[in-house]
Design a protein around this nucleic acid. Structure first.
Lengths: 212, 212
DNA sequence: TGCCGGTTTCAATCCGCTTTGACTTTTTTT
DNA sequence: AAAAAAAGTCAAAGCGGATTGAAACCGGCA
């Protein structure tokens, strides 16, 4: 991510104003990524601005210049996560060959997704938001938007379910809750149960729902 | 200490030592319940000893007499939760009439369970434990024990699945992850999707797994 | 080419607030 | 009167946020 473009005046090759803006944006990105990393590694509640600054390789004062308060960092992190999650999903789906076993692929893609650190970060924020109204106000819109985009993506991926709204919704809910339930269980209790068998079973259910 | 318990047969009918012990136990209970309530209402991370003391109706100093440190309260709370959850489960299952639709009842019982504040409290602790080794050390044994007891309870409730280990495990995993996935979703995103339909579908799956 | 005014970036320090747990005092019980 | 329980007090530590001042960088000008 934007590898260190510190001090490179470069005799006039660059647009003057945009160079600083670019560096600033790069720094902001570093900060946001450091924050997300901290959420994953030490939990949202234990993440201090000092930690984030250290992780980002900045001084606290420098960071406070880019983000006046902690909540500003969180807000940026939420937007960043939101964009990245959506993009990752889109990618893993649009890359599928049209003749692929889309049920299997979709299940695998989702499974990969909920195992990704970004999902852990979002989960940390979600849990914290339950008892933090400020955070909730930031997170809710992003969640809603994500859910809507996800739904639309699923519709595009499985156009043949177009006339079966009920079965489609059920299949989506089923997938979502099973996946997230396992993922959460993995994160917290860390009980690696018979996941493969369960995912296979989910696939079977989805196919049945499709063919009914 | 106080090697000699000079037994003074007081005119009162009460055992002298046990009375204080009883009062002390009652106070400890109040504190633990206040702590759990606080975990639910403001989250584990935001729960301070001051909050707990206020909720319990004690002074902080008084509380610190019963539990020297915060972790001691947490430890007691975990044990309390563990015992209560198991007991509640046991009750809701042993109360079933033998000719009842046990699949339906079991699903409903679990659904009730994951909606209970006690599950929320345990969830809060679980999430916090992911990034808190002290808490993890306290919570893990209780979780393991709970899982084992739950499994045994399910075996007793469905003896006819005795010879179908694989299907039985799959059914249990499926139930657990779906339920907890929905419950977590309820807590965090608060998206009351088509839960009833999903639970009905889960029932259908369980019956199929049974009859295969 | 090389120096200058203004702006952006960053480091260090300080302040106010909260939480914690040890310590001290008061009240109750036996 | 003695012991236990409860209540009150307090200092240390950690947090977030503000301030101050320095360093680096830009375009411009000789």
């Amino acid at each position: 991510m934007a590898a260190k473009l510190a001090r490179k005046p470069r005799s006039g090759a660059q647009n003057p104003a945009s160079w600083q803006a670019q560096k600033s944006a790069s720094t902001r990105n570093q900060i946001v990524e450091a924050a997300i990393k901290a959420f994953v590694s030490m939990g949202y509640a234990n993440t201090t601005t000092t930690h984030i600054a250290e992780e980002a390789g900045l001084s606290r004062g420098a960071m406070l210049h880019h983000f006046p308060s902690k909540m500003d960092i969180v807000k940026a992190a939420v937007e960043y996560l939101h964009a990245k999650r959506l993009a990752a999903f889109q990618r893993s789906i649009t890359e599928l060959p049209p003749e692929a076993d889309r049920v299997k692929m979709a299940v695998e893609a989702y499974w990969q997704h909920v195992q990704h650190p970004m999902f852990v970060a979002f989960f940390e924020l979600s849990v914290a938001a339950r008892t933090d109204d400020d955070l909730k106000a930031i997170l809710r819109p992003a969640q809603k938007e994500f859910a809507a985009a996800w739904y639309k993506m699923a519709q595009d991926l499985f156009p043949e379910w177009d006339g079966k709204q009920e079965a489609f919704d059920l299949a989506l809910d089923l997938s979502e809750y099973i996946m997230e339930g396992i993922a959460v269980s993995y994160m917290t209790h860390h009980s690696p149960k018979r996941v493969d068998r369960l995912l296979e079973y989910l696939e079977k259910c989805l196919r049945e729902l499709l063919n009914e």
